[in-house]
Amino acid sequence: MEHLLNKQVIDIEISGIRKFFNMVSDIDDLISFTIGQPDFPTPEHVKLAGIRSIEEDFTSYTHNAGYFELRKAASEFVLKKYGLTYRPEDEIIVTVGASEAIDIALRTILTEDDEVILPGPIYPGYEPIIRICGGIPVHIDTRDSQFKLTAEKIKPYITDKTKCIILPYPSNPTGVSLSEQEIKEIASLLKNKDIFIIADEIYSELVYDNPHYSLASELREQTIVINGLSKSHSMTGWRVGFLFADQSLCKHFLKVHQYNVSCISSISQKAAFEALTTGIDDAKLMREEYFKRREYVSSRLSEMCLNYVKPDGAFYFFVKIPENFSTSSFDFALDLANKAKVAVVPGSAFSKYGEGYFRLSYACSTEVLQKGLDRLETYLNSI
Score class of each variant (00 low, 15 high):
193 K>F: 06
193 K>Y: 10
194 D>C: 08
195 I>W: 10
195 I>R: 06
195 I>Q: 13
196 F>D: 04
196 F>H: 14
196 F>C: 04
197 I>N: 02
197 I>M: 12
198 I>Q: 05
198 I>K: 07
198 I>L: 14
199 A>K: 00
200 D>E: 13
200 D>T: 06
200 D>F: 01
200 D>I: 00
200 D>V: 02
201 E>Q: 15
201 E>C: 14
201 E>G: 01
201 E>H: 10
202 I>D: 00
203 Y>S: 08
203 Y>K: 01
203 Y>H: 08
203 Y>T: 00
203 Y>F: 13
203 Y>G: 00
203 Y>E: 07
203 Y>N: 03
205 E>Q: 15
206 L>T: 01
206 L>D: 03
206 L>G: 00
207 V>E: 01
207 V>N: 03
207 V>S: 03
207 V>C: 09
208 Y>E: 06
208 Y>D: 08
209 D>G: 05
209 D>M: 02
209 D>S: 12
209 D>C: 03
209 D>W: 03
209 D>N: 13
210 N>H: 11
210 N>R: 14
211 P>H: 08
211 P>T: 11
211 P>I: 11
211 P>D: 08
211 P>F: 09
212 H>T: 07
212 H>V: 07
213 Y>V: 08
214 S>W: 05
214 S>I: 09
214 S>E: 13
214 S>L: 10
215 L>R: 00
215 L>Y: 04
216 A>N: 04
217 S>E: 14
217 S>D: 15
217 S>P: 04
217 S>N: 15
218 E>T: 04
218 E>N: 15
218 E>R: 07
218 E>C: 14
220 R>C: 07
220 R>I: 08
220 R>K: 14
220 R>A: 07
221 E>S: 14
221 E>M: 04
221 E>H: 13
221 E>G: 05
222 Q>V: 03
222 Q>K: 13
222 Q>M: 07
222 Q>R: 08
223 T>W: 06
223 T>G: 04
223 T>L: 03
224 I>K: 05
224 I>Y: 05
224 I>G: 05
224 I>A: 09
224 I>W: 07
225 V>C: 11
225 V>M: 11
226 I>N: 06
226 I>Q: 08
227 N>F: 13
227 N>A: 15
227 N>D: 15
227 N>L: 13
228 G>A: 08
228 G>R: 02
229 L>R: 09
229 L>Q: 13
230 S>P: 07
230 S>N: 11
230 S>M: 12
